[in-house]
Structure formats: C-alpha cells, structure tokens
Design a protein around this nucleic acid. Sequence first.
DNA 1: CTGAAAGCGCTTACAG
DNA 2: CTGAAAGCGCTTACAG
Lengths: 336, 336
Amino acid sequence: MKRPTIIDIAREVGVSKAAVSYALNGKGGVSPETRERILDVAAALGWRASTAARALSSDRAASVGVVLARPPELLGTEPFLMRLVAGLERTLSAYGVSLQLALTSDTETELATYRQWWAERRIDGVVLTDLRTADPRPGLVRELGVPAVLFGTAGPVPGITALRSDDERTARSAVAHLVELGHRRIAHVQGPDNLRHTLRRAAVLGDTAHELAGIELHREVGGYTEDGGLRATRRLLAARPRPTAVIYDNDVMAVAAVAHADELGVRIPAELSVLAWEDSMLCRVVRPAVTAFDHDVTADGAQAARVLLELIETGVGVDGDLGDRTLVVRSSTGPA
Amino acid sequence: MKRPTIIDIAREVGVSKAAVSYALNGKGGVSPETRERILDVAAALGWRASTAARALSSDRAASVGVVLARPPELLGTEPFLMRLVAGLERTLSAYGVSLQLALTSDTETELATYRQWWAERRIDGVVLTDLRTADPRPGLVRELGVPAVLFGTAGPVPGITALRSDDERTARSAVAHLVELGHRRIAHVQGPDNLRHTLRRAAVLGDTAHELAGIELHREVGGYTEDGGLRATRRLLAARPRPTAVIYDNDVMAVAAVAHADELGVRIPAELSVLAWEDSMLCRVVRPAVTAFDHDVTADGAQAARVLLELIETGVGVDGDLGDRTLVVRSSTGPA
DNA sequence: CTGAAAGCGCTTACAG
DNA sequence: CTGAAAGCGCTTACAG
C-alpha cells in the first residue's frame, strides 16, 4: 500500500539516497556490486520513480500531449483518429512516456489546453495534427518553447519539426486511376476549407489533373461530415456538365454518397465513380464498396512519437516523411 | 519562456509564498484584499500550479487513467471507444484533471500499466471497462488501493464502485421487437467469451426469449470482429432449423453479416433479420440499414468521470446506472 | 489573520 | 568512487 521511495532502498542497502539515484539512473559514482544490490532491492520492493518528484527535480514530465480538434460527431466516426492515437501510445509507452489526450472542437480551447499543459508542466512536447490556414498553433508552441511535431504537412515548416505526407504521389495515383477509366469530368469534395492539407490536396489534384489529362477539376467543400459530403455531392450532381467521378477527402463523405445514391438519384459507379482519400471499414461494407487509399496510420503515429521523443531529448527535431498510400480498387469506380 | 512560480507572485505582491498558496487554493488565512491582489498578479503572470510540485506535496496527480484493451484491428473500428474517451475527457478537463490513455491487447500489459501508473503516482484513479470473467483487475486495484470505477456492469461489485447498464431492459426490447415480427427461431452472436457483460447479455437474452415467447436462443461466439461475426453467422446459417433473426453484440459483426449477405447466401431481412446491440455510422450506411440500439456513450463517459472524481475526492464511491438504450428500427429487421 | 519552516521524492552539482 | 546538501514548486501543520 505504502509506495516505496529511494529512501527505503537506501536504508535497505545501507547507502545514501544519492547513491541509489545514481545506480537507478545508470550514472557513475557507484561500484558495480553496490549498483546491482540497489537494483535488486528496488525490483524486490516494486519501486518506480515518482513522476512528480522526477518531474520537479529534472523538469521532465515524461508525458506528451495530443489535442484532437474535431466536431463531436466525427470523433467516433473517423477511424483514423483512434489509429493515430494507438500508434503514438504504443511507441511512447515503450519509452516510459505517457500520453495526455484532449478532445476539443474549437481553436480557443485547443490553444488554452496547450498553454495550460505547458504552464502546469504536464507535458514535454506535443504532436500537432490538421494544420490549418493561418494556424495560431505553430506560433504558440514557438512562443512557449514547447517541443512540437507537425503531423502530415506538405513541406517543411519554419522553426518546427514536420512529418510530411506525399500528397503529389497520392493525387497522381487517384487521378491516373480515374483517367485510365476514361473519366474527364472529375470533381474533388474536400474537407473543411480552413485545413491546410485539404487545400493542399485540392491544389495538387488540380495540377495533376491538368498535367495528366489537360482537365480542370470541379471543387466542392464537404467538411468531412456525412451531411457536408452529401450536400456537396448534391451540388456537384446539379452541375452541367455533370462530373462522372468524385474524389472525396475522407471515407465518411464518400460512404455517405454511396449509401444515399438512390436519394441522390445517381447510380454508382455507372453514372458516378467514387474514390476516398482514406480507407476504413465503412468503405468495405457499403455497396458498391468504395475504392480508397489505404495507409498505415499506426506506423505514422509511431514515427511521430519517435521524432518527438528525440526532439525532447536532444533539442533537435529531424523532419521526416510519413508512409505512402496505396490505392485499393473496389467497385465504386468504373468506366466513364 | 520562464514559467512563473508562487515565489514570483509572493515577491510581486510582497507576501509569503504560503499566503500565496492559501489565496490560490481558496483557503483561509489571507485577507480579502490580499487574496484579490494575489489572484490578479497570478492571472497577469499567467501562473498555473506545477502539477509535479502539487502532486508531490499533496499526493494528487490530477490525472486519471484508462486502458482500452482491444485487439488492434478493432481500435479504430468501434466508434464506441472514442466516444467513451470523449465523454470522459470533456468532464475531466472541466475539473482540471487530465486523461492518461493506454491501449493494449493483452491482460499482462494492462495490469502492468495500472501497477506502473500507480507506482509512479501518475494517476489518482482509473476507469475499468469490459469486465472479464475471472478478471484480475478488481483484485489488483483493491490490492493497490487505486480508486476505480467499473464501467457497465450487470450489478454491484464488492468493494468497487460500479456503473450498471440495464441489460434486461435492452434484451427485452430486442426480443420483443423480433417476436412481434413473428420470429421464433432467434440467435445471439455474442462478443468474446471472456467478457462478463457479453455472457450476461447471453443469459438475459435467453431468459427473456423464454419468458416472452417460450423459445430457446441459438448462441454463437463472434468475438466482436468482422471476421468472427462472419464465421459465427455461417455457423448459425448451417443450423437446422435455421434461425430467422440474429441479435449481434456489436455493430461491427452485424454490419459484416449484412455486407456479406450475398456470399453467405442469405437475403436480409427476407430470410434473416439482423439487429445490433450497438449503433454507429456503420449501421446506417449498409443496405439494408441495420436496426440497432442507440445510446449516449458520451454522457455515460461523463458520468463515469464524475463518479470517479467524487470517489477520489471523498473516498466514497456511489454506484450508478448508465443511460438506457433506444431501439432504432431500420430495414434489416422484418417479418419472419 | 499571517509568516517561517518542514516536507513531498527525486536529481545533481559539490566537496571529500 | 562516495556522501552530505541544496533545490525543484508546491502544501500544510505550526507557532505567533
């Protein structure tokens, strides 16, 4: 019941608590035999360093924070988020670092959370996702001096460690697939307009379509939600000439379109091919099943964790590249 | 950059740091004017108590832990988990308590995590989900003295605070719906055999079926996964006489059956009615859409957080009841 | 009502 | 290689 401290160990072994601390942390200043006895006693007592005490004296919280900023209705729906968290947590826990998780839907709260965590010395660093246009967060973490890793950016970000995702490659793969099927009127239903990577994708898709087939992309904003995706689809189906294929920025919007094809008055894929930027069980269970990009989110999360831990440890962050996406062709895409 | 401490405040205001501490914590021993000046200065400096220091002196980590023990492939798929986390986190953060999250797939690691968190004084309490048969966790938290709340039990658990879910009510609603449609051969595809609530549901469903229609339930173990659900469905379709309706313990298994009805060689609902114990977007987007039980997971999570915080604060935990489930009838259930 | 002091459990220069 | 000591930033009895 009473949790043991290094004083208990010191008493048991008959040395000073400093010696115990040195031994436990693998530093010099203790003879090999003494060290071994100390480690034995510590193990026997089930001792583990109090994070509070360690944090106070070494200024390390042994904890890393993530804020997921998503509208509540999407939190349970997008499998992506939980997989990312899983990847982060697995790696962090292997290094004895714990994960603090917060969920918010507005930027105000998110910023306040970072400030609070840092001021309370709860965390040693953060992972930032979903970089927005005019995003206040990079500025904030720079101001506070919080070690931060940006997850999934288009390119390097001044002063912050970034993990890039190769949107050009994905865009090329998506457009090539549709163009090969004969599509020339292609639309893109994007996520929220204030997310940088969604704008980036729109730009890259536009360029690629132009390059590969000399065509312009029709663009609609869907905002990631079922409802937004549905409304965007209605708008683009009303356009003349009407697109014959759509690239959706996530699984939720693409699947919403497929599930409501009847009400939308469109046959998929006969009249409209549907492709999703993100795969999940949703894409697999609707009919027709949705052609989508698979990728190893958990591995990406693990990489983010490693880069952040290194940044915290050494003070220098190394930019990296997230894993590539692979197109899984299913029945929702067909000849134009 | 330099994070302010109570010493900075004390110096600024011209009082002792004890006075600052009293004022900040709303205790007596400080005159109203002094208190106000202290609070003003603290706010101006952006001061927040170091959780490490506070934890060390008051033995409170201001943090609560949750371990989600699920096979990796289910982590991103079951929306339930993220919603539960969301409910917990919202409430905790309102009280300045943070959430430590760990994801594991085996009991060993899970137990080790609780031990470690407690030994390191990282948490003040835990929420336990998915109580298993012969579950070692209640014994462990009792042994360690960790305040714990059990989420979703059938009844009270000796020595631990429990939040009950009314499975009788849900079972009655499910069976009544199917019986009214004329079904007499009903099957139950349950979750993993080692989960106590899944066994409990099986028992309660069996009793209810007997009571309402004088029938026996066919039982299969599906294990919550797509694949397990599919295999269980194959088995029960091979039975003679064959069931005409199935109650699945979660959305994933029910939806897997609907999505693969063709391969299974069964028409839903004409030949087989399908009902899911848990609702999600998955149930809404497959065709036919799946009749399922909706409930407010986020509210349940919030309740768990409140009960746990109270237990930590006062030392006494008050058992409670989770919210009820409502049957959302869709197209996957029809006349026998 | 207020202040000086000890203590929470570690880490880490600093002398021996 | 080892030990005594200060310090991290709070809280809280304990005297005044």
